[in-house]
Design a protein around this nucleic acid. Sequence first.
DNA 1: ACCCGAAATGTATGCGCATACACTCGCTGC
DNA 2: GCAGCGAGTGTATGCGCATACATTTCGGGT
Lengths: 377, 377
Amino acid sequence: MAKAPTVYDVAQRAGVSIATVSRVLRRPDDVRESTRTVVHEAISELGYVPSGAARGLAARSTGVLGLCFPDVDGIDEVDDLPDPVRVGEAVEMVRDVGGPVTARWSNLYLGEVMRGAELEAWRTGHAVMIGVARGLRRAQAVNELAGRVDGLAVLSKSVPDDLLAHIARRVPVVVMAGPPQDDAYDHISVDNRAGTRALVDHLIADHGLRDLAFVGGPFDSPDAHERFQGFRDALRAAGLPAPDEPAARSDFTRAGARDLARTMLEDHLTGRGPGDETGRALPRALVCSNDQTALGFLDVLTEAGIEVPGDVVLTGFDGIDATQASIPRLTTVSQPMVELGRAAVELLRSRLTDPGAPPATVNLPVRVLLRESCGCA
Amino acid sequence: MAKAPTVYDVAQRAGVSIATVSRVLRRPDDVRESTRTVVHEAISELGYVPSGAARGLAARSTGVLGLCFPDVDGIDEVDDLPDPVRVGEAVEMVRDVGGPVTARWSNLYLGEVMRGAELEAWRTGHAVMIGVARGLRRAQAVNELAGRVDGLAVLSKSVPDDLLAHIARRVPVVVMAGPPQDDAYDHISVDNRAGTRALVDHLIADHGLRDLAFVGGPFDSPDAHERFQGFRDALRAAGLPAPDEPAARSDFTRAGARDLARTMLEDHLTGRGPGDETGRALPRALVCSNDQTALGFLDVLTEAGIEVPGDVVLTGFDGIDATQASIPRLTTVSQPMVELGRAAVELLRSRLTDPGAPPATVNLPVRVLLRESCGCA
DNA sequence: ACCCGAAATGTATGCGCATACACTCGCTGC
DNA sequence: GCAGCGAGTGTATGCGCATACATTTCGGGT
């Protein structure tokens, strides 16, 4: 690393001009084979690696696409960081007494989106740079990311609107997993509504259920809202009355859902008076707005001796791994995480090709996974 | 995106020189407040985002750190890509009849490593660029990555030696999760040996086990080898005879482990002659070189009516999520994935600070998770 | 008012590369 | 024997910024 060799060094060593060196790398067919060989030898001997910065500057395009995620760790400032494991520390023995399974869903989610993006980027010869819009210096971080890339895919809600508007003046922006929205950006969204609709259609048509309730999510979650709409679509299509509001709202966490479930259970019991049979007052099916919610309900229902799917049918949304491990396994709707990343990059590329096209929205299809919790084998 | 504004545009609009604009961004304290305000206004009005390429070129440092992963998808060429989900396709209904839980361990693993790296990079104001050394154009991809970063963290085995040597002449390289090796690079490794040692110490000391066997991994896995060494360390320390070779070798997959387990079970049974009690011939404890192997064994043992930990004690290594969902839950050793990424970036930074220091190797401690499969509560 | 040092700002240059354009050859065709 | 041509190569320039250095402005002391 004494001093990284440049085109000039290579040119001198190979006895050619820098233009030829550059051509050997960029447009090999324009150079005679014998010359090419000489240059390659010089490159190899010197350990030459072209500077991406210089190339990017000269070519007016970096060949890098950016991916911007929200901060799932909830770290606001440098001080919030947990201490790193100290090097040389002894092996730690932990008596793991159980408790809720570690929730790494969001990490997996982001990881898969990244994988999809990287895959598609690689296919087309792009590199991927990631950034997390986190902390007080968020604006600066996002700006720097935007300054280094040819296009930026942003996970919905990870960047404040004004900041997004600012960087969008420099690079094309694709918003991932947000609600289809009528702004100036391209969008990749997940078909929450159609997914829930298909799931509930199945519950009604194939399992003959008519008494269904929807457990919603936070008020500010567009996903939860869309899923509720899908729920209503299905009910209406079946000629059933569709509620205006979810029967309840979870905070999307398993623990929160447990509390909610306990409350609901009590209400139903007391509301029916003493001596009533457990759970009879519950809806026949609970369609939850996400998996964590469904799993929390499952915990409480099982604990209370209410059988799933016998007494109550339960479904989730997202397709997290834990839904395969629960008893019974949870019927859910699987998110196209990898596709999300791929589609975002694909859309960015087409935007770069045709900057003038009107903003596009791509709605990705989902997959309904039918398992035991809805009564399927 | 008509034409991204530059410092010149901002300078003109603000009525200052480009040097002042640059200073407002890089060293705000050198600029009078009133001037700063004017410049910031111009920046905001024009939608100015500094070019990372130009800055990198001028500053001779990009502020980007690279992360290079192997291709876990096994994609060699562009043609190998699975078709992306088609847009506008209908919701797919999948009857999920069970089978092995989807193995997303490696994705999670890489994702967590990335998360750790990003976290540490963010802390110090760096960006992270990822690359997957995949396909036939691997050399080019890695070169481009190296050309764009100030330092590169490479997952062991993801880059061929000669290529690594080439790029190491341009940027500092840290090798992650490889065996401690005496090459010119900095290394971050996981203390496989001490982890297994501690685990087996526990089996011997706390559970009084004396008849233990090690289920190894592939011959070419340094990790598996180190874990075996830890196993032997513990036996020897307890005055027990230590085998020269693992009792068997798995291919690190759950399915492969199942096959292996069945074969072993048959051998033991037939070797003992008819009428013998099931499983009595098996070792009292099976220390597996990774979790997938242990889970595969668990599948087969359970199927055969052999109780874990009653008849056979079983342990794994890695700490994948599935070990929390198995019955019984698997005692294992958890990998410091996030720390791996953090430590890599930390090491890169110190290397950038002091290029002259001798190559360093950091050995990350692991955590032993004691659960039911070894007899712990 | 004037001088001097510090603070603030401007000017000029180079980072390493891609590329437009100019140039040199070796041929072909006449 | 020379114009014309294309393949191969060299020369010169600019990409947008950071920064060394030059210059101006400002404030305080006398």
